[in-house]
């Protein structure tokens, strides 16, 4: 690798390998299909809607890795918290 490359190259092959592996392993370890992710998203919206008004378009959901474990991280923008528990209101 030449001197100038050190400044202008985006990424070394070593870094590419690391990043590609990390991404591929998240999915290998979790083994969740996009279809399943979509179903989880819809179910989450359903549950949270009982308590809060949320911006469904703004939901971000992703699998992130931490050591040998994978976490499902969801960011759900809240527009308004509902005042009362829905079941209480039913009674």
């Amino acid at each position: 690798m030449g001197f100038l490359d050190r400044f202008f190259r985006k990424e070394t092959p070593r870094q590419s390998a690391r990043e590609r592996l990390q991404l591929v392993l998240i999915h290998d370890r979790a083994d969740i299909s996009p279809d399943t992710m979509e179903r989880i998203r819809k179910d989450l919206i359903k549950v949270i809607n009982n308590y809060m008004v949320i911006n469904e378009e703004g939901i971000e959901m992703d699998l992130e890795r931490d050591g040998r474990s994978v976490a499902l991280v969801a960011s759900i923008p809240v527009i308004e918290v509902k005042r009362k528990h829905p079941r209480k209101r039913d009674k």
Binding site: P13, R14, A17
Partner: peptide
């Protein structure tokens, strides 16, 4: 590894 061409042991 040193030249950044290959994964290292730490990676």
């Amino acid at each position: 590894v040193r030249k950044g061409k290959m994964l290292g042991v730490s990676d």
